[in-house]
Design a protein around this nucleic acid. Structure first.
Lengths: 198, 198
DNA sequence: GTAGTAGCCTAGCTCTCCTAGGCAAACGAT
DNA sequence: ATCGTTTGCCTAGGAGAGCTAGGCTACTAC
């Protein structure tokens, strides 16, 4: 009875690969155990429960993406940085749909604060430094930027753009142009704040 | 043995309400059956399977949202229309998190084509008519707009903005200002198209 | 070498999804 | 009114997922 040598790290990595292949929803404790030639009950020695497993995948993905984004960002500024960051983001989501899906599960505040998610926020702010925005505009721009990237990639993945023939690559490129334009010329606050709700 | 009077419509509606209360993932066939005081097996007379149930919720949500957006859009144009549409979208997502989540599951092409999703696309295009964009810019703008709204709302819901104190309502308002600005002054195509990748 | 811990096991419970086959209530036609 | 026929619900049961309790064994530290 040789030991399989399962660790939480290996478990997480295989779970992430499995997620990319068959979808996050199909990453079950049982499937993972089969993959390691081990009984499912044995995995509970390494992970707390199925949700914990997914959270670990999410944290792995956040770190991986932060690393890639940081690499893409190195030595760039302005629109160049924006495009590099955005492409790293979209690229990762396309290459690793399961991990990207895991990134969307909401972590509890402490976990989120300790995650690589903060690096994402820092990098986004760093990009915006090239556009010379001061608070609170900067926060608003961070949120819009992050939202736009995520929204575009997310809709592209779920086939939301399928109905129109135009290549999504081109729309992506133009969306980045538009983001650059609006960040360069960030509009001043209109009328009253907090007056948006119907 | 009085009959419970279950129909696919009532089933879908209760499932949608349940989804808003306890999350889409917890909308199980068994829970739904309990809600109707009926055995779970009985529901398979009305729905094909659990996935079919979720799809029905998604279609319901798409229709409901399209109705609200259409009402909000009535008699408005330009930025006014943009803001009304966007607020209807965000409002619905906040009020009906479960239904909104259901809207994100990807439908197969035929189902999607027959859904109220096409009304969403039409309305988005209608809004853009006020900004006088011609193809293919219009398609790009539709995608960016849709992506930005979805992305912002989605990140807000999963707590992605939690770490910064600024009110999301204000960021939302400024994001709409920014969208209006960039649509008003849509930047011309930069350099070469399809040159975005890595 | 022996104690303790780490890693895996079996057994077994609950829950969900889903199929097969049965029975009774509602309804339409005679 | 009654006699099918359909419609709506039932029981029974299997497969698979999540998880717990408790036991055995291999490694590790001393």
């Amino acid at each position: 009875m040789a030991r399989a040598g399962v660790t939480a790290e290996r478990l997480t990595l295989v779970a992430a690969e499995l997620a990319d292949e068959v979808g996050l929803a199909n990453v079950t404790v049982a499937a993972l155990a089969r993959h390691f030639g081990v009984k499912d009950a044995s995995l509970y020695f390494h992970i707390k429960n199925a949700h914990d497993l997914r959270v670990r995948v999410a944290l792995l993905a956040l770190t991986e993406l932060a690393d890639r984004a940081a690499a893409a960002l190195a030595g760039r500024a302005g629109k160049d940085a924006l495009v590099a960051f955005a492409n790293a983001y979209r690229d990762y989501a396309k290459r690793h749909p399961g991990r990207y899906a895991a990134m969307q599960i909401d972590l509890d505040p402490e976990t989120a604060a300790a995650s690589a998610g903060v690096r994402h926020a820092e990098m986004t702010r760093a990009i915006l430094r090239g556009y010379r925005l001061s608070e609170p505009d900067q926060t608003d721009a961070v949120r819009m930027l992050h939202g736009t990237l995520h929204g575009f990639v997310s809709l592209e993945k779920t086939g939301g753009f399928r109905h129109t023939p135009r290549a999504t690559d081109d729309s992506w490129s133009r969306t980045l142009d538009a983001l650059d334009a609006v960040l360069t010329n960030w509009p001043p606050a209109q009328v009253a704040e907090t007056e948006t709700a119907r």
